[in-house]
């Protein structure tokens, strides 16, 4: 007799997970974010990061950028399920490796300590478009924009220079060149 296996849980073979950036254009109305996020949690999809803001005040359109991981089948389902939501206008999907798409996250770092230490930290931040937003005798707040992994690395490395507080956004994405996603 063959060894009984599950009829209803997933097949034994595990497929590779890819990271995708899903961009959703929605009507900016009450509850729309809950619909999108609820779809992810209700169907067991994963959200790594989320960024949302209105991009067109006249047409009342918000753009939601979601970083997610899943098998190709799951990512397809995510797109198709999103498209079924009534306030959703269009859905774009980019692989993280896609060279034609720019991904950026922003982070705010607060450093507290001696000037020497903080200056070292600012130096390290420079390659990520560092902007100093606030300065006191013993502290600085710095804004950087970079990729997720780069910010992760910075956050780790700068602790020794007095990094005591981090605030960061989810990723936002835009295609390179003239083309616009329709």
């Amino acid at each position: 007799m063959p060894k009984p296996k599950s009829a209803y849980s997933v097949a034994g073979r595990k497929e590779k997970l890819d990271t995708h950036i899903i961009v959703v254009w929605v009507d900016n109305e009450a509850g729309v974010l809950a619909r999108v996020v609820g779809l992810f949690s209700g169907r067991g999809y994963n959200i790594e990061s989320l960024a949302v803001a209105e991009i067109d005040q006249k047409l009342n359109i918000s753009r939601i950028t979601i970083v997610t991981t899943g098998t190709p089948q799951v990512v397809d389902q995510i797109k198709l399920q999103l498209k079924k939501l009534v306030p959703v206008h269009k859905v774009a999907d980019f692989k993280r490796e896609d060279k034609n798409v720019i991904f950026k996250e922003m982070a705010l770092f607060k450093f507290v300590g001696t000037n020497g230490k903080i200056d070292k930290a600012i130096n390290a931040c420079k390659k990520y478009n560092a902007v100093i937003l606030d300065t006191t005798n013993r502290s600085k707040v710095v804004q950087i924009t970079a990729l997720r992994r780069e910010i992760d690395k910075m956050a780790n490395n700068l602790k020794k220079y007095g990094l005591i507080s981090i605030s960061r956004t989810g990723a936002v994405a835009m295609t390179r060149g003239e083309k616009v996603f329709k």
């Binding site: 060894k3 009984p4 296996k5 599950s6 009829a7 209803y8 849980s9």
Partner: peptide, 10 residues
Amino acid sequence: KITGKGRTLV
């Protein structure tokens, strides 16, 4: 007979 893992399923 239903045995093993199959039992946990509905």
